[in-house]
Structure formats: C-alpha cells, structure tokens
C-alpha cells in the first residue's frame, strides 16, 4: 500500500523535490549562493568580516553574525508586505543561531559578518533551504567553519510521514518539522515543529528529515567543489 502512496506533486514519501545549488553567483558579495528546491528560489549574499558599527556594540572576543531572512513581495501567491514580519524576524533569529554553531567567530573579534537571505520565490520549507544556501555562501566567502550546515524538513500529510514539505502540504498537512544539522559533527542546530505528532511519528519524521539533509549535503559539496574544478581546466579554454 505504502509503495503506491503518491503525494500531491507525485513524489514518493521520502523523495525530495528537484534541487540545485550554485555557489559564487553574485559578483559584489564576499560570498554567495543560490538554491532552487522545487519552486523555491533563494539567493544568499555574505558580506564581511568587517568592522562592526556602532563600535560599542562590537564584541571583544568574537565577531557578530547578522542574518536577515527576507521574502520578496512577489515571492508568495498573495503579495507580501516588504517590511519584516514577525515570522521573518523569528526565522532570521533561528537561522542565525544555527549558523553561529558552525562559524568560527572567535577568529574575528570586533567584526561583523552579514548574511542576507532573499527568498525570491517561496514554495514551502524556505527556512531550511535558506540555511543550506547560506552555509554554501559562507564557505564561498572563505569564512572559517567547523562544518557545513544543511537543512531539510519532514512532516505529516494525510496521516503519512513525508519528506520535504511543499507549500500545499504545509497548509493542508498535520505537522511540519524543519531541521538543520552539521553533518560531520552530527549535531542538530535548528529544530522546530508545529502541528501534531506522536513521539513515534516525531522520531520517524526526524530520521527522514535527517536523510534528506544528508542528500542535500552532497549537493552542497558538489556546488562548492565545482568552483575549484572550474579553475583547473586551463587547457580546454586556452584553445578557444
């Protein structure tokens, strides 16, 4: 029975939407990345480290990480007001808090590192997609990190635990569980849930989200390693 289970977009329960990550897409930013996950399209730019202003707010033993998660007015079906909503303020905080676990901030006292996350098109699970792209952008910026951070969501839709919740599934589903992990250190750095899940369902959803995150981690690796691969092919191009 469960093998025949198809989701609203035709996916199997443990299938991610199509995804693609690209690193170094912005010319002006110190580091940047883009993620496409289903119809989600998110761009991240990293600036810094730079001197923190105002000076009295700077920390003497580490850098301050600033993070803004922002949705474009045209990113949703109904126009979203461009001014930051309470949801965006909360998400900016949980994303920052997750990335703080990975970035070695102690190397840059008195500095700040700014992460700007712009959701250009939203289709559910944007916070975890944002975090996945943000950590690629930080790596591309050359900011030291203990590990990458990669996120994925799972949830319960029509009584079934499924991976990578889409927009309709989020609205109609019974529960949503976004997580982000440091895949090598095996630590959870973002964990939220809303809806209703028994302890068994929570465990099942958590483990499914974990598997999805590890699949996306491979994509992060590919996107970053591509940058270097591109810089190796001198012969091919010099013939042009």
């Amino acid at each position: 029975m469960s093998n025949n289970f198809k989701r609203i977009d035709g996916r199997t329960p443990d299938q991610l939407r199509p995804y693609k990550i690209r690193a170094g897409i912005l010319k002006n930013a110190d580091g940047s990345a883009e993620i496409k996950l289903g119809k989600n399209w998110i761009v991240v730019g990293v600036y810094g480290p730079k001197e923190h202003f105002p000076k009295f707010e700077a920390l003497q033993d580490r850098a301050i990480l600033f993070c803004r998660y922002h949705m474009a007015p045209y990113s949703t079906t109904e126009r979203k007001s461009p001014k930051p909503s309470r949801r965006e303020i909360e998400l900016s905080k949980v994303i920052r808090s997750a990335l703080e676990e990975a970035v070695i901030l102690e190397r840059f006292p008195e500095m700040s590192i700014d992460i700007y996350i712009e959701v250009l098109q939203a289709e559910g699970s944007t916070r975890v997609a944002s975090i996945t792209a943000a950590s690629v952008a930080l790596a591309e910026a050359g900011i030291p990190m203990k590990d990458m951070v990669v996120g994925c969501s799972a949830g319960k839709v029509n009584g079934k635990i499924v991976l990578d919740i889409g927009e309709t599934e989020d609205k109609e589903g019974e529960a949503d569980l976004p997580i982000a992990i440091m895949p090598n250190l095996k630590k959870v750095v973002l964990l939220q849930m809303d809806g209703k899940l028994t302890h068994e369902e929570f465990k099942e959803a958590f483990e499914m989200a974990l598997k999805g995150a590890l699949e996306l981690y491979e994509e992060q690796k590919r996107a970053l390693k591509d940058l270097i691969e591109k810089m190796k092919e001198l012969e091919g191009e010099s013939n042009e």
Binding site: A139, D147, M148, L185, L224
Partner: peptide, 8 residues
C-alpha cells in the same frame, strides 16, 4: 583532494 568545511 578538494575539501569543504567540516570534511575530515
């Protein structure tokens, strides 16, 4: 070997 942050 190409490495990324966190790779052992």
């Amino acid at each position: 070997k190409i490495v990324i942050p966190g790779e052992g």
